[in-house]
């Protein structure tokens, strides 16, 4: 996703002279390098100084520019939190904070590099919009929106590298603020966001092949503002909803959907697989980490089997 991000910003920046890129000591490879070379004034590396990255971006936005701030998610969001809250959100400025390598992606770097609760933190700030695309194709749409259309700060939660594309011919069109059907189905509704959609498709495959259950997969890419209208429709259509997220159970998609279920008096079943409210003290690949928090394709499948007749 990160290479694609740079490609799109570079492409857009030739026409949109307001686009700027600020990074905090992250190497400018590929298109990012080209951007820097072509627009040296519009590219700033603040060094290992994330508070500075956000503060400067806010100042640039106050002058009408549209900056992207880009670094590893934990440093992009947590470290300069108060600059994001006060400089960006309180003043409601169109700055995009790109958090890269989100959730448990940096599985060998330890808890300091994981963002288990970033959606929760970002969603709670007034004026902040939160977008978490599920694959590089969806990210392209999201980045284009951030380049040209957003009027408020955006926390853009992306993966890292090598993500497969899941968007297909049967998918709805991407629209900011809308739950997007990626693959249609009739018996079970999966709600997810971000690259963990991979697991949703694995579960879908197992359910369809082994149990003949028709599964709809949705990308809830815009976590804020959330598409309650479409959620209500899902509640009406499905009596079984499965949520998979690479995020804490506090303040993420599961908590959002469950609180809405109460408000809309949903009578169906909701199965959710979120990260626990615990730091992760283990290493390995991303699946190893997710498994520690009971998120794996087989665990999800088995739980559904026990509960779905």
């Amino acid at each position: 996703m990160r290479n694609k991000l740079a490609d799109i910003i570079y492409k857009k920046s030739k026409k949109n002279k307001k686009l700027c890129v600020l990074v905090a000591d992250i190497s400018p490879a590929g298109s990012m390098y080209q951007f820097r070379k072509k627009f040296p004034n519009r590219f700033i590396n603040t060094g290992v100084a994330e508070q500075s990255m956000i503060g400067i971006a806010a100042g640039m936005a106050l002058r009408g520019l549209r900056p992207f701030c880009y670094t590893i998610a934990t440093f992009a969001l947590y470290r300069p939190f108060e600059m994001i809250r006060v400089d960006l959100c309180y003043q409601n400025l169109p700055v995009t904070i790109v958090g890269m390598g989100t959730g448990t992606i940096y599985s060998t770097l330890g808890g300091t590099h994981l963002t288990q609760e970033d959606i929760s933190v970002a969603r709670s700030i007034p004026n902040m919009q939160v977008i978490a695309p599920c694959d590089p194709s969806e990210m392209e749409d999201a980045v284009k929106y951030c380049c040209d259309k957003s009027k408020s700060p955006v926390y853009l939660r992306i993966g890292k590298a090598g993500e497969k594309v899941f968007v297909n011919k049967k998918s709805d069109k991407w629209q900011f603020g809308k739950i997007r059907k990626i693959y249609p189905g009739n018996d079970l509704c999966i709600l997810t966001f971000g690259p963990i959609i991979k697991k949703a498709f694995e579960v879908k495959k197992l359910l369809e092949e082994k149990k003949n259950i028709s599964v709809e997969v949705n990308s809830c890419h815009t976590l804020k503002p959330f598409d309650y209208y479409s959620l209500k429709k899902k509640f009406k259509k499905f009596n079984k909803i499965l949520i998979i997220e690479d995020h804490s159970k506090i303040g993420g998609l599961a908590s959002l959907v469950k609180s809405s279920a109460y408000e809309y008096s949903y009578k169906g079943k909701i199965f959710s697989f979120s990260l626990k409210d615990e730091f992760i003290h283990c290493y390995g690949n991303q699946d190893d980490l997710l498994d520690k928090h009971d998120i794996s394709t087989s665990k999800i499948f088995n739980k559904l089997l026990k509960n779905i007749k």
Binding site: I56, L62, L65, M83
Partner: peptide, 25 residues
């Protein structure tokens, strides 16, 4: 009033961003 201030340590960042934007523009 061209920026919200009050939390200390924010003004310099905003000023740097604004001053740099003036150079870009």
């Amino acid at each position: 009033i061209e920026a919200s201030t009050g939390s200390l340590g924010h003004g310099m960042g905003l000023a740097v961003g604004m001053a740099h934007a003036d150079i870009i523009n």
